[in-house]
């Protein structure tokens, strides 16, 4: 019995460590985008991104002259493409230790095509670039099965309703004995 506890504990530990190890393994995909005078190297840590999960990225901004990196800012957001029924989501971005480096994450809620939009600002001006993403979702269950699950509480409600008919008769017998 004690062994099962140990297996469970190890499984929990592995689950907790998996994001850490994923990050430690390094990016699975890197993209280079050009935003005016700035070059953005974007490291992505999962491919494809999944709905409802934090999508982590690193951005390293470089410029032709070091002076252009002065006062550098970066904002990011995920924008659904046309046909994806979702609203834009702001990404959380914070500066990294490395000069011109940023790290961030965004959680996209709906499957389909999205654009990861970066707006970089600094001495060389403000520019926006986008990176197309295809967000994946868990496998869709058949709609008929979804309805079956969704309406299943009605069975309990109906059974309760039927039971209340005889309950009313009992209540009335108790309240008005013949």
């Amino acid at each position: 019995m004690r062994r099962w506890w140990l297996v469970g504990l190890l499984a929990c530990g592995a689950l907790c460590l998996s994001p850490i190890t994923a990050a430690a393994q390094g990016p699975v995909r890197s993209e280079t985008l050009y935003a005016g005078a700035y070059t953005l190297r974007i490291d992505l840590y999962s491919d494809p991104p999944f709905t409802g999960r934090r999508y982590t990225f690193d951005v390293l901004v470089s410029a032709t002259t070091p002076a252009d990196l002065h006062g550098l800012t970066l904002a990011a957001s995920a924008v659904p493409e046309t046909g994806v029924n979702a609203t834009p989501v702001r990404a959380s971005v914070s500066p990294a230790r490395q000069a011109g480096g940023f790290q961030g994450y965004v959680t996209m809620g709906v499957r389909g095509g999205w654009l990861l939009r970066f707006t970089v600002g600094g001495a060389a001006g403000i520019n926006t670039v986008t990176l197309p993403l295809r967000v994946a979702a868990p496998t869709a269950i058949p709609i008929s099965l979804a309805w079956l699950i969704g309406l299943s509480p009605l069975i309990a409600l109906t059974a309760f309703g039927i039971s209340q008919r005889s309950y009313l008769a009992r209540l009335q017998r108790a309240a008005f004995p013949v």
């Binding site: 709905t51 994806v84 809620g109 709906v110 499957r111 979702a137 709609i143 699950i149 969704g150």
Partner: peptide, 14 residues
Amino acid sequence: HQLYGVDVTLWSPF
């Protein structure tokens, strides 16, 4: 919602 988007009708299974 993850599958079908934010504007899923109120008359959806869940």
